[in-house]
């Protein structure tokens, strides 16, 4: 299971990376915004994308839309982990095809639940 973590704050990338490692996911890579993440996704065989929303360059919501519009990446499970908490934004992310939405600050338990749920659905 190869995972890409996208967040402009290295602290948050590190926290997510640590939490994923605790959950048994050790094969992770990092990117600091959508425009760096997109080429990595296109050239690498990633199985899962965890992304922030608010980033300089390309935002997470734009990255999500690009992923869904790309024939090769369209089916990639995407979890949004963000401080953006407006209802309109959550609805927009849902309409853009996000697979899970976690608001910061979050707990290890919440992250695990959402990831489990996503793979449960993808697997079935």
């Amino acid at each position: 299971m190869k995972i890409l973590i996208v967040d402009d704050f290295s602290t948050m990338r590190r926290i997510i990376k640590n939490l994923l490692r605790d959950l048994g996911f050790t094969n992770t890579q990092e990117a600091d915004d959508g425009s760096t993440a997109l080429p990595m996704l296109r050239s690498g065989d990633f199985d899962f994308l965890v992304t922030d929303w608010n980033m300089p360059g390309m935002t997470g919501i734009d990255l999500l839309k690009e992923v869904r519009a790309d024939a090769k990446l369209a089916g990639l499970p995407v979890l949004m982990v963000t401080a953006e908490a407006k209802r309109d934004q959550i609805v927009e992310a849902a309409q853009a095809g996000v697979n899970g939405y976690v608001v910061k600050p979050f707990t290890a338990q919440v992250l695990k639940e959402k990831i489990d749920k996503i793979f449960e659905r993808v697997g079935s």
Partner: peptide
């Protein structure tokens, strides 16, 4: 839909969720 970052007064705003439970409900 402009990104706003952490909501400092989530409780006093109706257009903002105040936690993961509300995200899940929505």
């Amino acid at each position: 839909t402009v990104a706003e970052g952490p909501q400092i007064n989530a409780e006093s705003r109706t257009d903002v969720v105040s936690g993961q439970d509300e995200v899940d409900d929505l």
